[in-house]
Nucleic acid binder design. Sequence first.
DNA 1: TTGTACGCGTTATCAG
DNA 2: CTGATAACGCGTACAA
Lengths: 341, 341
Amino acid sequence: MSVTLKDIAQIAGVSTATVSKVISGKHQDIGEKTIEKIRKIARELDYRPNSLARSMKTKVTRTIGLIIPDVRNPFFTDLARGAEDSAHERGYSLLFCNSDDDLKKEMEYIDTLTQKQVDGIALAASVKRNRKLEEGFRISVPIVTLDRDVYFPGVRGHIHSDNESGAYDAVKYLISLGHRRTLFLSGDPTIRVSKERLEGYRRALTEAGIEYDENLLLGGPFSFEYGYEAMRTWEMDPEVTAIFCGNDLIALGAIKALKERRIKVPQDISVMGFDDIYLASINTPGLTTIRQPSYELGYATVRRLIDVIEGVDHSDATMVIKLELIPRESTAKPKKKAALG
Amino acid sequence: MSVTLKDIAQIAGVSTATVSKVISGKHQDIGEKTIEKIRKIARELDYRPNSLARSMKTKVTRTIGLIIPDVRNPFFTDLARGAEDSAHERGYSLLFCNSDDDLKKEMEYIDTLTQKQVDGIALAASVKRNRKLEEGFRISVPIVTLDRDVYFPGVRGHIHSDNESGAYDAVKYLISLGHRRTLFLSGDPTIRVSKERLEGYRRALTEAGIEYDENLLLGGPFSFEYGYEAMRTWEMDPEVTAIFCGNDLIALGAIKALKERRIKVPQDISVMGFDDIYLASINTPGLTTIRQPSYELGYATVRRLIDVIEGVDHSDATMVIKLELIPRESTAKPKKKAALG
DNA sequence: TTGTACGCGTTATCAG
DNA sequence: CTGATAACGCGTACAA
C-alpha cells in the first residue's frame, strides 16, 4: 500500500488538512516548523499524491485525449509529437488513440476518454463521416478538431491547413516553370481536403487561362502504393509534363514507378507532393512539395484545446494554417520538345 | 454536471448499491424488473460511469504508460502503434510520453504516470543511463523494458531484439556474396545495442577467417544526417566493397552521399541497413536490411506488461526477439576488379 | 495557525 | 433479492 496524506498526518501529529495544504503549496497560513516537519516526513516516506483522488475533488484530470487515424502515417507522426510536446509543456498528459479512420472506433475512444474524465480531446477525425450518427452523439468534454470536418455537437474549435491556397501555390509554381498540362494525382477525392486542393488546382489553371481537363484528375488512397500503381499503369500522355500529387507518399510512389518506366524526374516530368514529410527531403531527387507544418499543427491544436479548457478562450473559433512551398529537385522547366508538343 | 449512480438510484427509487450492480453487470441477485427499470433510466439519462471513482475503489485504472525517446524515430513510430493496439485489445488506454533520450525527463514521466495511478509502464528507455541515479529511484508500478538496459529496481520484464545474431547474419550474408572488407558504420558505439551488433559483426568475420580491422569501424548518431556526412567525407578505400550500417537511416544517408560521389549502389559498393523501416522498402534501390519487428516488439511488450499486471505471470523474465534478413537491391556481389584488388 | 467534517462517485461488505 | 454504510485519498469551508 502506498503512503497517503493520512499516514503523514499521523506521524507528524497534525491533521490531514494541514498536510494537504503543505503538499499542494497552499501554506500561507502554516507555521514554518510544521511545514518543514511535514516536508521532511513526506520526503522520507517518498510520498506521491494520488492524482485520482485529487481529480475527484477538483474535477480536473490534467489529461487530454489525442485521436488520430494512425501514427504510422508520417503526417500524423509529427502531429502526435507536436501534440504531446504542447500538452507536456502545460503540465498535461496525453492519452493516445489510433482510430484507423473508423468512425465507430473513434466514437468508442471518445467514450472511453470521457469516462476517464479527460479535460478535453484533440481530434483528427476519421475520413469517413456519418452525419446522422454523429449528430446524435452527446459529448460532454471540449473538443478541438484538426484538419477534417466533424459534425459532433459541441466542438469548441477547429484547426486546419489552407489546402486550397497550398494547391493553388503548387500549380501556379508549375505553371510558372512552363507546365501547361499537369496531372492531378489526388488522394481520396470524396474528402474535404481533396476537394479543397482540387479547388486550388483549378483556380491556378483558370488564372493562367488553361482549361480544366477532368481526364487529368486521378484519385485513390493517400498511399505510396497508390501513387506507384497509378503511375505504373498510367497511359502516357506526352503533353503532360508535370504531376501534382495529393500527398508526398503518392508522389514518392509515382516517382518510383516513373523511374522504373525510364521516365526521368524532373527532366521528363516534374512531380510535386504535399505535406513535406521527412522522406520528401531525403528522397533522391528531393521532392518539391507544399509544407504542412504537422508538428506545429498538433502543437497548436493542443494549445488551443488547453486554452479552451482553462478558460483562456480565444475569440476566433477556427484557425487556418498557412502553407509554404518548398522547392527541391523533382520539378524543373519542361523540355522544349515537350513544351512545343 | 453529469449524471451519477445516485441520480439513477433516486429516480428508480432504489439504492446506489443496486444500481452499481446492474451497471457493472454483477446482477446475479437482482430482480428482472429492477434491472430493466434501471437500465432504461440509465439509457435515457445517457449515464456514463466515472472511471476515476471506480478506480479509487478498485485500485485499477486500466491505463498504462508508454515511454519512448521520440515517435518520430521510425522505429518507435511502429512500436508505438503496436503498443497501442495491444493495449486497446485488452481494454487499456495508453498514456503517451516522449523522453527525448533524456533520463531526467524519463524519470519525471514515470513520476507523473505513477501519480496518475497507471497499472504499469512500458519503457523504451533513453540511451544515456545513470546507474547511480536510477538505483535510488523507487518505482511502485510494474515496468517492462524494451530494447535497452535499465537499472531501475523493480523491473518486471525485459524484451529486446537479438542484435548480435542480426548483425552476424547481415555480415555473413555480405561475406557469402564475396565481400571481404566491410565498413561498419555503427550508431552510437557506447550503447548496448551497438556493442551487440559489433559483436555479431566480429563473429561473422572470425568465422570466415577475416581479421577484424578497427579502422573499419565508424560510429555516430543513429540518423540519416550522420550516415550522409560520414560517407560524404569518407576517405575512399578501394578495397571496401560493402558497408554495414547501424540502422536504416544511417544506411539511407550513406547511399545518398555515395550517389552524389558517383559511387553506384550496389554495383560499386553494397550497403546494408538495420531495422527495416518503411523507407527501406520504398527507397531506390531497395535497402537490404535486418528486419526488427518494431510493431510486434511494441505489441509484445505491452502484452507482457498486461500479463504481469493481471497476474498471468510468465515464467521467463526476458524475451529475445529473433531478427530476419530482408534481401533487396542495395547489396550484390562485388565487382571482379575490386575483388581482385 | 490548525483541525473537523463532509463530499467527490463508485464498489464491497454485510445485514436484512 | 435488496439496501445501508463504510471505505478509497484528497481538498476545502468553516470552526476553533
